[in-house]
Amino acid sequence: MLLHGCPVGKVTPAPPVAYAGKHQAPLPQLTGRVMDNAHLLSPAQVAALTRRLAQAEVRTCHQIVVLTVASLAGEPIEHLGQRLGNGWEIGRRGYDDGVLLVVAPAERQVRIEVGNGLRRALTDAEAARIIQKDMVPRFRKGAMADAIDAGTTAILREIS
Rank of each mutant, 00 (worst) to 15 (best):
E126M: 11
V99M: 07
G117I: 08
E126K: 13
A150D: 04
Y95R: 15
R120M: 12
L122Q: 08
T153S: 14
F139D: 01
L122F: 01
L100K: 07
G98P: 04
T153M: 09
A154I: 08
N86S: 15
L101M: 15
L118N: 03
R140C: 06
A147R: 10
T153A: 14
E113W: 13
D96G: 01
N116S: 12
M144W: 15
R111G: 01
D97N: 15
A147M: 11
A154S: 14
R83A: 10
A106R: 15
R157K: 14
G142Y: 04
T153Q: 13
T152C: 11
A154H: 02
G151S: 04
R92H: 14
D134Y: 10
I90G: 08
G115A: 08
A128F: 03
T152L: 06
E113F: 07
V114L: 02
G151W: 02
L156K: 04
Q109Y: 00
R129I: 04
Q109H: 03
A104V: 09
V110R: 05
G117D: 09
I130Q: 05
V110K: 03
M144G: 00
R108V: 09
A106K: 14
F139E: 00
R93I: 09
G115P: 00
D146C: 00
R83D: 08
R108T: 11
Q82S: 11
G85R: 12
A154G: 06
A154N: 03
L101K: 06
I155V: 14
D97R: 09
R108L: 11
R83W: 06
P105E: 10
A125L: 11
D149K: 03
Q82E: 09
T123C: 01
G98W: 01
D96I: 01
A154F: 03
D134A: 12
L101C: 03
P137N: 06
G115S: 05
R111E: 06
E126G: 00
A145P: 02
